[in-house]
Nucleic acid binder design. Sequence first.
DNA 1: GCGTAGATGTTATACTATATCATCTATGAA
DNA 2: TTCATAGATGATATAGTATAACATCTACGC
Lengths: 163, 163
Amino acid sequence: MPIVSSKTAPATGFDRHNHRRCIQHGVRFATHACEQAGLQLTPARQRVLEILLSEHRAIGAYDILDRLREDGFNSQPPVAYRALDFLVQYGFAHKIERLNAFVACSMPEIQHAPAFLICRVCSVVAETHPELNRGALGKTARDAGFVMEQCVVEVEGVCPNCR
Amino acid sequence: MPIVSSKTAPATGFDRHNHRRCIQHGVRFATHACEQAGLQLTPARQRVLEILLSEHRAIGAYDILDRLREDGFNSQPPVAYRALDFLVQYGFAHKIERLNAFVACSMPEIQHAPAFLICRVCSVVAETHPELNRGALGKTARDAGFVMEQCVVEVEGVCPNCR
DNA sequence: GCGTAGATGTTATACTATATCATCTATGAA
DNA sequence: TTCATAGATGATATAGTATAACATCTACGC
Ligand SMILES: [Zn+2]
Ligand SMILES: [Zn+2]
Ligand SMILES: [Zn+2]
Ligand SMILES: [Zn+2]
């Protein structure tokens, strides 16, 4: 009964789990990190983070805006975009370019360049951190003399629950 | 004087090269491929491909539209988007999600999942084909039971010419 | 002649994101 | 205290990206 030792990162989001913990952890981590760093996790910012944390799916800025409106927040577009900019800038959320939408970070405590596995059936977005510098793409970039700074990696496919 | 044997794909776009050949090759290949496959490379589609081939940079749909207008083509948005949809569908061009813009494919004769190295200084976009299935990301996906279908890989950084 | 499929014409609209300037508040220096 | 500053928010307008919907045209095969 061989134990396969894997050095690769797992994907967070497809497996069953106690999602309340995701939400709690996300909010608590952001709260503490902001205190430490002297950043302001204002009500609107925290509420947007909570909305993003509510599920492992990408949510568009205007959907977020609708939910803010329901909660009594001011709901002009800049409100959502400013909060999202803050959350993305400090690593509490990520933008999914392919979907023009946003997800909460699943591992904000780890410094990472994220990659996403997006199920085209159920829309769940799982996050992982593949260290692309170490693979073939990193070698290609080095050979070309290209300095990698920001990576967008978004894979569309079918998740284990939808097969 | 060791010769380093590399199995990784090179990046096309940063090096000096005879760019006329890129353009000629791109148009000719598309012409022949469309003949073979019974597809119509109509004047608007061919012109959009030529515009994209004119440089190794990403061009937005509305910039393309401006150039079509200069050439006397009808220039409502659907004209550009329809031509782009065609070119992307059959692999003659790619969309860069991060830039909401499009590039001509640098290797249409190869069946490939592309990856892009985007210089944030000069905006040149180099294309490569990294076979992500074979690396850490592929392993993560397999371990998670995720079936990869479409990959978006877009790296922003600084190219060798801008360092 | 006729039906079909693919391409194009045309108009309108939806969706995503940012610019700009005013205002408010907390903080800290003078 | 007074004032300057930085960060956050309010408010309005606009820019930028993409698609829906329906009409028309053309080439092809029957
Ligand atoms: Zn969860
Ligand atoms: Zn993350
Ligand atoms: Zn070239
Ligand atoms: Zn390509």
